[in-house]
């Protein structure tokens, strides 16, 4: 039975990252990954930090998601991410530099004030590093977009 397609919409406060019809979505729920196929029951979940992947005509693409919410309703999936980037938008070099920085700060015992922030930054960069190499071979027509402030999305705060 053909249940049709899922309309996937990824939005962050700064921009719309993606709006596309796909066949399958895997999203990073707060309590573990969730797979969504067309015809899924209505669902509302909080998201953790992780990799969002979606399939479209045999091709799988990836994106990072860092916190937020997802709603599934009538073959429509809306992802309200706090941050999100498509794999092809990530600057791997920057992400790796950010990881180094964050790692140093996490290990810095003297300065525990920023520990939580550093840990978050570390998690962010690790997710990016995980996703960045998975750019689909068949480069999609959607050109990598820069995020709202003109900074490459791989940049860390």
């Amino acid at each position: 039975m053909d249940l049709g397609k899922l309309s996937l919409e990824v939005v962050t406060p700064e921009r719309q990252v993606l709006h596309e019809d796909v066949n399958f979505i895997q999203l990073p729920g707060l309590d573990g990954y969730l797979g969504i196929l067309p015809g899924h029951a209505p669902l509302l979940t909080e998201l953790g930090a992780g990799v969002l992947s979606f399939q479209k005509g045999g091709e799988t693409r990836y994106a990072t998601v860092l916190g937020g919410f997802a709603e599934v309703l009538a073959n429509r999936v809306i992802i309200l991410a706090e941050r999100s980037e498509l794999a092809e938008e990530i600057d791997l070099g920057r992400a790796e530099a950010a990881r180094e920085r964050a790692l140093k700060r996490v290990q810095d015992k003297a300065n525990q004030v920023d520990f939580e922030r550093a840990q978050l930054a570390l998690q962010r960069s690790l997710t990016r590093i995980q996703v960045a190499p998975r750019v689909s071979k068949r480069r999609s027509s959607t050109a990598p977009e820069r995020d709202g402030n003109g900074k490459p999305p791989g940049a860390s705060e």
């Binding site: 406060p13 029951a41 209505p42 669902l43 509302l44 909080e46 309200l80």
Partner: peptide, 22 residues
């Protein structure tokens, strides 16, 4: 609409509100 809530609705609601303020 009968949603499946991965987390209790209350928790989702509580987390959404500060996001909305942002």
């Amino acid at each position: 609409v009968d949603y499946i809530y991965e987390q209790p609705p209350k928790q989702i609601f509580d987390r959404l509100i500060p996001r909305y303020v942002e």
